[in-house]
Design a protein around this nucleic acid. Structure first.
Lengths: 171, 171, 171, 171
DNA sequence: AGTTAAGCGAGACGGTACGTCCCGTCTTTGG
DNA sequence: CCAAAGACGGGACGTACCGTCTCGCTTAACT
């Protein structure tokens, strides 16, 4: 009964109780425990089920544009209440494994794009692509989770510009 | 009674109960509620009190070294169980304000060093110093909180190298 | 778990806590709250359950003897610690309804006997039987609850003698 | 600070707290503890202080009338919320001593009147006056404390009539 | 007049019990 | 014969008062 998403959206991951989920779903508590070991697992599956997330493969364009778009998408995603609350719950439950599943696609897409750019010679070939991807997404996730600063759109631009300077010119 | 730090270290922020803190401190529960509104506030204050953290001003040296050192220090800090658990609790309780207090010094130090580097012409003067600092620390905090990858020492090197390429030569 | 009677006997209604009852019964506190709204209700039910109290119907004999016996029995009952404490608790909680259930049998028996005496002409027929019963038992309950005087056995005799003088000859 | 009477009247002896008394009186809690060992003692003294109670000596008239009046007065007194609550608190605290002080005057007055009646030959001389007084007042206090029946005015009449039949003609 | 001390208000303190909430398990029951 | 309904033991929650304990601050009373 993945309609528990409604509750986590309404109450936040803090106020979410399995009893409430069971009640709203018209289901015995035990039925929930039978299928999921924790709130996190339940919500994770619910999220996968109901949040298609299927972003179409962004047809290639200029590198800067693509990265900007990737970062902006990450910001958008992370800004939706459901994603936000589900992820925070997973953080709280230390489910790094599930978190990775939710967040990896984004990161892999960036890495993929960077690798293509290397082939095209847009960026230096001896680059640590994985680290570069983290350079782009790390600050986003930091601002999101720690709420250290607002996640405005222009942040994507600043970030990409700064990182691109690194990726292009070698030392 | 900031000896609650011992319990958060022993049990993690999840297993920490105010009742246990009160019991161990030989104190009435109410006394705790009288002074702090939540576990987070209590631990935050306890942490400030007992973890002086006062790192001496790192006498200046080469820019790359200083940044490497700053990042490595951040990694060290974030790796200590007390800091880790207290911060995770603050994240859970959405106390971005308190988190900021704990983390700002590190970030400000980096910004300060970058600004000095600008004056010396080590890096381009038209740089967004704040964003650059996030570029350095964001990936660290991401790896830490999301446990997306191990926080090994070499990570500091990779990070600094990558970022410095950005900061030095503009396009 | 009506073994809460043991605690009320040991500690008095003042020292009885629901937590202690739950602990001794090996039961969650909530289970007690689920079934009884208050200590009073719990003890009342426990008392009914475990204190059969079924005194056999006293085979009829002389009126004076029967009344004396009834009063003496009331005194005995009221003198037992359990009954005493349970009733005092009910008084404290203003549960007149429950108290009535505990005390009515005694009173009704007296009224019944008086009515029979009226049929036999032992006492005047125009008598207010209910009031007469109160005349006999009222002083007992007063001495008991208010501890205004000791409840010795001879009190029963004095009382019955006095009341019988009223019941027999009219003015 | 006998203005604690207001609180016991407003909240009942159950809801009365020393903290509230202290607050309303604009007084430190300790000051109350300094002077009285318990809520009961405090209220008892407050009651004595502020409830003059001084009923004038009822100039003598017919025995039946005097007794009726005495019983009716007892009913009136016991019906006032303040007296009611203070006494119930004393019952709860097992302060039979203080209760006796509050209630004795009434009983003594009845005994006194009966003794005079004996001198005048209105009632038989070999009577246990103390027991007779209890016969009159016992049922009143029973109905009051146990709320076993309403304390209507006619109760006084019934009671006195019944008792007088006993007191006058012996068998 | 100056010093001392008693009594005061205020309120923090270590505690106890409250009644509620939710956990995760176990039991009953009706479709 | 499953699953809803929900009771259960457990245990933390945050609150309310308890009775004790300093605190300074009057306000006498006695040098």
């Amino acid at each position: 009964m993945a309609a528990a998403l409604e509750l986590v959206e309404a109450l936040g991951h803090t106020g979410l109780t399995i009893e409430a989920v069971a009640a709203r779903a018209g289901v015995g508590k035990q039925t929930i425990y039978r299928w999921w070991p924790s709130k996190g697992a339940l919500l994770f599956e619910a999220f996968l089920e109901f949040e298609p997330g299927g972003q179409e493969p962004p047809r290639p364009s200029a590198l800067a544009d693509d990265l900007r778009r990737a970062v902006a998408d990450a910001i958008d995603e992370v800004t939706q209440r459901r994603f936000d609350q589900v992820c925070r719950l997973l953080v709280h439950e230390e489910r790094a494994d599930l978190l990775a599943l939710l967040m990896a696609p984004r990161r892999l897409a960036v890495e993929e794009r960077l690798r293509r750019a290397q082939l095209l010679g847009e960026i230096s070939a001896d680059l640590d692509v994985v680290a570069a991807a983290e350079l782009l997404l790390g600050p986003v996730y930091q601002r999101w989770l720690l709420r250290s600063a607002p996640l405005c759109d222009s942040f994507a631009d600043t970030l990409v510009e700064l990182v691109l300077r690194s990726l292009r010119g070698g030392p």
